[in-house]
Every structure is written in structure tokens, then in C-alpha cells.
């Protein structure tokens, strides 16, 4: 493609050569770059498949996940129509894994989405306003930072008591500080750039600058970081239910299944590993997709 630079009066100056095509909007560009990233696409498809299976679990699961049977306890993979065998109460593993995806994905996504909204906004405000507002917000976050995230999740959900909702609240609280810090760091960097100054010089208000200029630049690092937290959230939720906090039996949940099956590890090691494998695949997928997003969201690539 040949392009032309014009001089001030609009006359063509000289021909330049370039291989670039005219870019479309930002998100269209992200989609275009993703289209050639087959690894990321594959794992997006995998996550979508798992999510669909979880949503349509009643249609897919061959058996009732809560129907136990003393006869069919801990049967091996492929035993009499139990494609993935049965657990210690004789419930069908495939059905339980399919249903378990519902709980695990919800425990993975909800806290991250909530924490992104809350932590991200706090970080944006702290970063843009600076001064004592920044000090107040960021020092509060530092207090949370002083504890390891697992310990914090256990402590909060221990205080609140068991149950799904309390588990979600605990995880959300755990993820707010790191997200807030990422948003604040990115905002501080953007705030000092000349284009923000130029926007102020053209009479724009702080809200307009935050929403039009800052958010656009901060959203990428925050979203990328958030997507990498999903796997952490699934693992933490699994850890909570393993400890008897968060999701309670007999709900089908990967973490909980891992916890209850551990006693049978010498009888059916393969079956005991299945919920762990599910957690591993999902968290790995989210991590890889997060890496892919990082590349796709960079306008320069």
C-alpha cells in the first residue's frame, strides 16, 4: 500500500511505503489480533465448553449427582456406564464434575468481578486524585497486604461462618487490595503524561478525563491482572471448601470433592485425582488466556 504525506497546504510531499492497513476501533483490533493467536483461542474454547457444560449440566449429566448408592461405591473409570467412575458414596463422577463446574466457576468469577469493580475504582480514584485520598486508600490496602491471601481468606470466612455467600465475600475482600494497587499504579503513570495535561488544558473536567482518557489506558492492565486472578480464586475457593468453609456438602464442588475423596486415595487414586485435574485445567486455561489477552490488548503489537 502506498500512502502520501501532505504538506501544510495539502499538497502531496512524497510517497512513503508502508505495509500497515488502516486500523479499526480498539476492541475490533484486539479481536483481530486474537484471531491469529491459536493457543489462546483454543483455551478460550475450552473454558467456554466447560462453562456451557456447567450451565447445561441437567441436560448433559447422565445421572443425578446427588443420588448415592452403596453398591456402586468407588467404581473404576468406565464401570457399567459410569464414564468416570463413582465416588465414595457411589455417585456418578461425571455428573458431579459437570455440576461441580457451576459452583467452582461461580466461586472463581464472582469474587474477581466484584473485586475488579471495587478495587479498580478505588485505585483509579486514589491514583488520579493523589494526595491524602491516595494515602488513605492505599495505606488501608497495605494493612490487608500484610497477611498472606490464603490466611486472609480463611480468617475472614472463618469469622463470617461457612456458606457460599460468606465464601464469596471473603474472596472478594482478598482480591480488592491487589487489584486496587494495580489500578492505582497504572493511573499514577497515566496521570503524569502530557495528554492528560493537554486534556485539562482544553477545559475537560476530572470525570471526563478519568472516563475518556485514564480508564482506556488503565483497563488493559487491570483486566489482564484480573483474568489471572480467576484461577487463584478457584483454587482459594477449593481450599476454603476443603477446610469446610465456603461451599458445604453435599453440594457438588470441585474443591469439596477433592476434600472428601482424599480418604479414598489408596482405593481409587485415579478418581480422586479427577476434581484436581478439573481445577488444574480451568486455572491453566484462564492463565493462558490472560497471557494471550495481554498481547492482544497491546496496541503496539
Amino acid at each position: 500500500m502506498t500512502e502520501t504525506t501532505l504538506d501544510a497546504a495539502g499538497r502531496p510531499l512524497a510517497a512513503e511505503t508502508s505495509t500497515r492497513a488502516a486500523p479499526a476501533g480498539y476492541w475490533r483490533g484486539v479481536a483481530r489480533r486474537l484471531r491469529y493467536d491459536y493457543v489462546t483461542l483454543l483455551f478460550i474454547a475450552l473454558i467456554a465448553a466447560i462453562a456451557l457444560a456447567a450451565i447445561f449440566a441437567p441436560l448433559i449429566a447422565p445421572f443425578d449427582p446427588y443420588k448415592s448408592s452403596m453398591i456402586y461405591r468407588l467404581k473404576p473409570i468406565g464401570y457399567r456406564g459410569f464414564l468416570l467412575g463413582t465416588d465414595e458414596l457411589g455417585r456418578d463422577m461425571l455428573s458431579r464434575l459437570t455440576y461441580g463446574g457451576r459452583s467452582s466457576l461461580m466461586m472463581g468469577l464472582t469474587p474477581v468481578i466484584l473485586a475488579t469493580a471495587i478495587g479498580g475504582s478505588l485505585g483509579l480514584v486514589a491514583g488520579y486524585l493523589g494526595g491524602w485520598v491516595n494515602a488513605l486508600i492505599m495505606r488501608t490496602m497495605d494493612v490487608f497486604y500484610a497477611f498472606p491471601s490464603v490466611l486472609l481468606a480463611v480468617a475472614i470466612s472463618g469469622t463470617l461462618g461457612g456458606g457460599v455467600v460468606n465464601g464469596l465475600i471473603a474472596l472478594t475482600l482478598v482480591f480488592i487490595p491487589p487489584l486496587c494497587r494495580v489500578a492505582e499504579g497504572a493511573t499514577t503513570q497515566i496521570r503524569d503524561r502530557d495528554f492528560v495535561e493537554a486534556a485539562r488544558a482544553s477545559g475537560a473536567s476530572a470525570t471526563s478525563i478519568i472516563f475518556y482518557h485514564v480508564l482506556r489506558n488503565v483497563s488493559a492492565p487491570v483486566l489482564i491482572y484480573a483474568s489471572s486472578l480467576i484461577s487463584v480464586s478457584i483454587l482459594l475457593a477449593a481450599g476454603l471448601s476443603f477446610l469446610g468453609l465456603g461451599v458445604e456438602p453435599p453440594t457438588a464442588d470441585w474443591g469439596l470433592m477433592l476434600s472428601t475423596l482424599r480418604q479414598s486415595i489408596y482405593v481409587q487414586p485415579l478418581i480422586c485425582a479427577l476434581p484436581g485435574l478439573a481445577i488444574f485445567i480451568v486455572s491453566l486455561s484462564f492463565n493462558l488466556v490472560s497471557d494471550g489477552l495481554r498481547q492482544a490488548m497491546d496496541v503496539r503489537s
Partner: peptide, 8 residues
Amino acid sequence: AGSPPDMR
């Protein structure tokens, strides 16, 4: 006039 060539 113009600008330097694209070295790619």
C-alpha cells in the same frame, strides 16, 4: 519533504 523510509 517527507519522512525517512520504513526500515522494515
